[in-house]
Design a protein around this nucleic acid. Sequence first.
DNA 1: CACATTTGACCGTC
DNA 2: GACGGTCAAATGTG
Length: 304
Amino acid sequence: MESCCPASSLSTVRKRLLDELILGQESANMLRVILCKTQMDKRCKLQLFAQSLIDKILDSFDKSLSILNCNESNKVSDFLVMDSSDSDGQKSEDSTKRTNTSESLTFSKRRRTSKTWTRETVAASFADSHVWRKYGQKGIRNAEHPRNYFRCTYKYDQGCQARKLVQKIQDEPPLYRTTYHEHHTCKNLYEESQIITGNTTKDSSIIWSFDSHEQNYKPNGKMIPTLPKMPLETKENFQILHQNKSSSPSDYFISPDITTFESFGHFSDFSSAFDQGHVICSDMDIERMVGPVFDEFLELWYTG
DNA sequence: CACATTTGACCGTC
DNA sequence: GACGGTCAAATGTG
C-alpha cells in the first residue's frame, strides 16, 4: 500500500498530528474540568455518562500520543499495558526461565507482583481524581529525570494498595509516564470534597493545586499534595485569591493535580500565579482559552 | 504538634 | 554488584 505522504514530509505531518492530538487532549481535559463544576446530585447520570465519555476520549488521546512517540523513538511500545501476571501477589517462580527479550527488559521484574498499566500523558495524571502521597524518589539509570513514587493517601486508613510511578520522559512538550499499580479500593474523597467545598451554590468550583517546578515542588521546597486537605486549602486559597481578583472566589479553579498545569503550558494567563504554586483560573480565563464555544456550552449545560 | 516530604538505607531480583 | 522499589527516620511546614 502506498503512502499518502512523501517520506520527507512525514516528520512534519507527524508533528502536526502530535500538535493536534495534544490540543485535543487539552480540550478534553478542559471539558472534564467544566463537567466537574456541576453538582453531582442534579445531573448525576448525565455527568457520569459524560465523564465516562471524556475518559474514553482522553484514553484515546493517550494511546495515540503514545503510539506516535513510540514510533518516533523506535522503542518497544509499553503504553497501556495491562499486566495481570502474578496478580495474587506472589512473586514469579519461573523468573529463571525468562528469556532476555525486549519485553522482559521493558518491564522491571522487581517486585512486579500486581496489576500494572502505564499511561503517557502531557499532564502526569490529569484524569486521576485520587489522593496520592509521595513516598519515594529515585534517580533511574539512563533517565534524565527522577522517578517519583506515590501511594494512595488512604493506604493505612482504608487499606488501599493503589500506587503510581510518575516519571517525566520528555521536556518539550512535557510528557510524563505514569505507571499505576493496583486499583483504588478506597472511597474517592476527591469527589466527596467537591460536594463539601462550596457546592451549595451554582458555582460549584473546584479547588486545584499544582506546582510550577519540574519536580512538583513549591518554591519553599514542599510538595503540594494532591488534595490532601481539601476544605482547608479551599478556604485559604479562596481568601488569597479573592484579595487579588475582582471576581467571586467561587469563580476560581485550582488544579487538582500537581502536574496538571503543564498541560496548559501554552496558556500564558495561567502563569500569573505561578510563583505561589497555584493556578488561578476564572470562568473568564476558561472562556478565553476555549473560545466562544464555552458560552454556548455553559448555556446548554446549565439549562439542561 | 501533626502531618507531609525528603532521602539514605535496606531489600529483592537479576 | 547493579538496579529499582520501598521503608522509615529526619526534616520541613503551617
